[in-house]
């Protein structure tokens, strides 16, 4: 393996928020890790910028960091709106209407976010928090499961 490639990988690891990097190329495997464990609190996977893909090299996020970071980050500033029922997800009251909310919209407690329909029960889901819609996780008209996350709201 080219030593320059290893140097480059070290640089990639140093500059990234990854704690570990494992590379396999032509039968040779190199595993790099940072000396100190990364503190998960300030790291949120949703802020993660996708890393460029190297040919034949796989970047691997540390699962340990991810697992620790996710609940902490979500509890802190991201609120997940989940479906209370199994049904069909609608972003608007009717097929021709404007969506209730879009990414970037400010919502407050009581704002209608969507409808989930099950057997002609139209259940309006209202926001429990004040914040901003940062992600809509389900496409209009798609089936959703019980407790499936539908929106991410930044508090």
């Amino acid at each position: 393996m080219d030593i320059n490639l290893v140097k480059k990988l070290v640089k990639v690891l140093e500059e990234s928020k990854l704690s570990e990097l494992e590379v396999e190329q032509e039968g040779l495997k190199v595993k790099l890790s940072k000396g100190t464990a990364f503190k998960g609190e300030t790291f949120a996977p949703h802020h993660f910028v996708p890393q460029p893909q190297f040919h034949g090299i796989e970047l691997k996020e540390s699962n340990e960091v991810k697992d620790k970071a996710e609940p902490a980050a979500q509890a802190k500033d991201l609120h997940e709106v989940k479906s209370p029922i199994v049904g069909s997800f609608y972003r608007a009251p009717s097929p021709d209407a404007e969506p209730y909310v879009r990414v970037g919209d400010r919502v407050s407690t009581g704002t209608v976010l969507c409808i989930v329909e099950a057997m002609k029960l139209m259940n309006e889901i209202i926001s429990e928090v004040d914040g901003e819609i940062v992600k809509i996780l389900v496409e209009n008209g798609q089936p959703v499961e019980y407790n499936q996350p539908l929106f991410l709201v930044k508090i």
Binding site: K82, P84, G110, K120, L121, M122, N123, E124, I125, I126, S127, E128
Partner: peptide, 14 residues
């Protein structure tokens, strides 16, 4: 015809 509508906040029906 019947239309049942509900409002929920979190897991609670209001």
């Amino acid at each position: 015809g019947i239309l049942l509508e509900s409002v929920s906040s979190g897991s609670k029906i209001t």
